Amino acid sequence: MTYQRKIRAGLCVTLVFLSSIGFAGTPPASPVATTAWKTGRQTGLPIPRFASVKSFKARMRVGPSTNYATKWIYIKPGLPMEIINEYGHWRQVRDDTGVTGWMHSALLSGARMAVVAPWLTKNAMLRMDPEATGAVVAELQPRVLLSLHSCSGSWCRVSVKGHSARGYIRQSKLWGAYPGEIFQ
């Protein structure tokens, strides 16, 4: 007997909104498509790159200092953030809705996480094997939080944060891995 699980995003992503910036419903532009890769002045790591929120109550600020106003408070550890610039211990980040701001590096982790693409209009299929004909393990709603284990450039091996579901999902259905990016 086979069955499919539908995993909802509502339990997986929680934000406190402190700004008037909204989500337009389309994926934010990736700087990878428009900018050559560079390295961060402080870390020497590639810019842009993905990281994730490490702590509960992580503040995104308007500028790179605690003297700047808080723009957002993220209360869900593991949310993916794209680091787009560095300044001292501060990282300019972009979230999956396109909102940008600054976070202290202590609030971020190098652990790779992703969310099912928020711009999708249909659920994404989590499959047993990395192929379109692989058995469906679960249907994932947009914004479901995932741990990324590896990506082949077209498929990523993932597990659903807080659930036992694991398998493969098309890389194009994620925000947290660049198109064509390969990593183990």
Rank of each mutant, 00 (worst) to 15 (best):
G101P: 11
G101E: 08
G101Q: 06
G101Y: 02
W102C: 15
W102T: 14
W102P: 15
M103R: 04
M103H: 02
M103G: 07
M103C: 05
M103S: 05
H104A: 14
H104I: 10
H104V: 12
H104D: 05
S105F: 06
S105A: 15
S105K: 15
S105G: 13
A106F: 09
A106P: 04
A106I: 10
L107Y: 05
L108Y: 10
L108Q: 09
S109G: 14
S109C: 13
S109I: 05
G110Q: 07
G110C: 01
G110V: 00
G110N: 09
A111H: 05
A111W: 01
A111L: 09
A111D: 15
R112I: 02
R112G: 07
R112Y: 06
R112W: 02
R112N: 08
M113A: 06
M113F: 04
M113I: 02
M113T: 05
M113P: 00
A114W: 01
A114N: 05
A114S: 09
A114L: 06
A114Q: 04
A114M: 07
A114P: 04
V115P: 09
V115G: 11
V115Q: 08
V115L: 07
V115R: 06
V116L: 08
V116G: 08
V116W: 03
V116P: 12
V116D: 04
V116C: 10
V116Q: 07
A117Q: 13
P118F: 00
P118K: 08
P118R: 08
P118C: 04
P118N: 08
W119F: 09
W119E: 15
W119L: 11
W119I: 08
L120F: 06
L120Q: 15
L120I: 05
L120W: 10
T121Q: 15
T121Y: 10
K122A: 09
K122C: 06
K122Q: 11
K122W: 07
K122H: 10
K122R: 13
K122D: 07
N123R: 10
N123F: 06
N123D: 14
N123K: 10
N123V: 09
N123H: 11
N123S: 14
N123T: 10
N123E: 14
A124Q: 05
A124I: 02
A124F: 03
A124M: 04
M125F: 13
M125S: 15
M125G: 13
M125H: 14
L126Y: 11
M128S: 13
M128R: 14
D129K: 10
D129H: 07
D129Y: 06
D129F: 02
D129G: 04
D129V: 01
D129R: 11
P130L: 02
P130F: 00
P130A: 04
P130D: 01
P130Q: 03
P130G: 02
E131F: 00
E131A: 05
E131N: 11
E131I: 00
E131V: 01
E131T: 02
A132F: 04
A132D: 08
A132T: 05
A132L: 11
A132P: 11
A132V: 03
A132Y: 07
T133E: 08
T133M: 09
T133Q: 07
T133A: 13
G134H: 01
G134P: 01
G134E: 00
G134N: 01
G134I: 00
G134D: 01
G134T: 00
G134V: 00
G134L: 01
A135D: 12
A135S: 12
A135N: 11
V136G: 11
V136F: 03
